[in-house]
Computed example of a mutant assay.
Amino acid sequence: MTSKIDPATAPLPIDAADWAEDLTSQVVPSRRGSGSGRNALADFARSRLVGLVEDARDTLVGQVRSLKSIADQITDTIGGSLGDTGEPFTRMIGNATGAIDNVADALAEKSVEELVEEGRELVRAQPVVAVGLAIAIGFLAGRFMKAAQD
């Protein structure tokens, strides 16, 4: 004799206590229809995933902007220390900070859906570049994870 697990009262495998009420109100009442519970669950999961990705995007934008701030400080230090001799370096760093600022602005202004669609277009237009970026990002993520464990 097996007992059925009620999704409204079952413990969640992750720390998502604040999601339980949303999940119950969006999914459990819809289970009475034919398949509409699955659609509601998929919509709920998608909205939560988009929210998490938007939070991660906002964090990334903040980190990119702090990187720009650090580059600006380096430019000021080089300009103050080397004077005219450091001008080529300050110009190069200034160009890099402009590019960093453009990336931060682009990330901040676009929705997750727009970013995903642009990613799809990049993969379709330049699959080799997309694979190269995926490998580079995977390598960097692995290095960060390894460094975080140490």
Rank of each mutant, 00 (worst) to 15 (best):
Thr24Met: 05
Ile78Ser: 04
Leu107Lys: 10
Gly35Trp: 01
Thr90Gly: 09
Asp6Gly: 05
Gly83Leu: 03
Gly62Leu: 04
Gly35Cys: 05
Ala17Phe: 12
Ala108Phe: 11
Met145Thr: 02
Ile78Gly: 06
Arg31Gly: 06
Pro127Cys: 13
Ala10Met: 09
Leu140Tyr: 04
Gln73Tyr: 09
Val50Ile: 07
Leu133Asn: 12
Ile135Cys: 04
Phe89Glu: 08
Met145Arg: 01
Ser25Cys: 05
Pro29Lys: 07
Asp72Gln: 06
Leu60Met: 00
Asp101Gly: 14
Arg91Thr: 15
Gly35His: 00
Ser81Glu: 03
Val53Cys: 05
Arg32Asp: 15
Arg32Pro: 02
Met145Ser: 11
Gly132Leu: 12
Ala134Lys: 04
Ala8Pro: 00
Ser34Ala: 08
Lys4Met: 14
Leu122Phe: 09
Ala136His: 02
Ser66Pro: 02
Ala148Cys: 00
Ala108Leu: 10
Gln26Arg: 12
Trp19Asn: 11
Pro127Glu: 11
Asp84Ile: 08
Val129Thr: 10
Val116Trp: 13
Thr97Ala: 14
Ala16Cys: 10
Ser36Tyr: 06
Ala108Trp: 11
Glu114Pro: 06
Gly35Gln: 00
Ser47His: 03
Met92Ile: 13
Ala45Gly: 03
Gly83Ala: 03
Thr9Leu: 01
Arg143Phe: 03
Asp58Trp: 02
Asp22Arg: 08
Leu122Pro: 13
Leu107Phe: 14
Thr85Cys: 08
Gly132Asp: 07
Ala99Trp: 14
Thr77Gln: 14
Glu121Cys: 00
Gly33Pro: 00
Leu133Gln: 13
Ala136Ser: 08
Thr75Met: 08
Pro127Gly: 06
Arg143Gly: 00
Ala8Trp: 03
Trp19Ile: 11
Asp22Asn: 09
Asp55Met: 05
Glu87Ser: 11
Arg38Ala: 08
Gly94Arg: 03
Asp84Asn: 04
Val128Trp: 08
Thr77Met: 11
Leu52Met: 05
Arg48Pro: 03
Val53Tyr: 00
Ala141Val: 08
Arg32Glu: 15
Val131Ser: 14
Pro11Phe: 04
Ala8Gln: 12
Ala136Thr: 12
Lys110Gln: 15
Ala104Ser: 11
Thr9Glu: 05
Asp6Arg: 02
Ala16Asn: 06
Val64Pro: 05
Asp101Trp: 09
Ile70Val: 13
Gly51Ile: 05
Val53Ala: 07
Pro13Glu: 10
Gly79Cys: 08
Ala16Gly: 15
Leu115Gln: 04
Ala20Lys: 14
Ala99Gln: 14
Asp18Tyr: 09
Ser34Arg: 03
Asp150Arg: 01
Ile14Val: 15
Gly51Ser: 06
Glu121Lys: 13
Ser34Asn: 02
Ala141Pro: 01
Glu54Lys: 04
Gly79Glu: 02
Arg65Tyr: 00
Phe44Cys: 03
Ala17Ile: 04
Glu21Ser: 12
Arg31Asn: 06
Glu87Ala: 14
Arg120Ser: 10
Met1Ala: 15
Gln126Leu: 09
